[in-house]
């Protein structure tokens, strides 16, 4: 089944990296197909940043995202630019502390940034918390696959912190 996942937030949150990690998890560790794309341009710095992934069990022909069925939104501006038009059948994970608006589709409030800052002590892993929640809330890739993809992608010496963030995300996603 084809899934189209869109990530948005502000520059510096690791939005694009999240999309790359998800694509990597699906394509390398879940034996699925994935295409990751992103919006390039001056607006990606400071403004709303956006990355997306198509995941499918069969080879992906048309590579672009047309109507995402899964959204991960980590800023109000990101919501306004890339989330507000989410279809009714979509599901959206929202960083509850950073996004004021709520979509008309089904959504989960994930306190990723406050968890990262508080429990984990490093705001920078908020996107990894969000990834964990995404995986358990939607099952779009397996836990094992995302773990391996995260480990591939994070700087040396931060593996433990990132795994902890991911596991905290799994829990938040299960509860959601």
């Amino acid at each position: 089944m084809r899934h189209e996942i869109r990530f948005s937030g502000y520059g510096g949150q690791g939005i694009i990296l999240s999309a790359v990690i998800l694509g990597r998890a699906a394509a390398l560790y879940d034996d699925k197909y994935a295409v990751q794309t992103q919006v390039y341009g001056p607006e990606a710095r400071g403004g709303a940043s956006m990355g997306q992934v198509v995941i499918d069990d069969t080879p992906i022909l048309y590579p672009e995202v047309t109507e995402p069925d899964i959204y991960v939104i980590m800023s109000q501006q990101g919501f306004e630019k890339y989330g507000i038009r989410a279809g009714e059948d979509a599901v959206m994970l929202i960083d509850a502390d950073l996004v004021r608006s709520r979509p008309t589709c089904r959504y989960y409030e994930i306190p990723a940034t406050s968890e990262a800052k508080g429990t984990l002590g490093r705001e920078i892993v908020a996107n990894i918390v969000m990834m964990g929640a995404l995986v358990t809330a939607t099952g779009v890739v397996s836990r094992e696959a995302i773990e391996r993809a995260v480990l591939d992608s994070v700087p040396k010496g931060t593996e433990e912190l990132n795994l902890k963030a991911l596991k905290r995300g799994f829990e938040l996603g299960e509860r959601a």
Partner: peptide, 10 residues
């Protein structure tokens, strides 16, 4: 082109 140049795939 920009599409194929910038997309990521296996």
């Amino acid at each position: 082109d920009e599409i194929v140049g910038h997309m990521r795939e296996r």
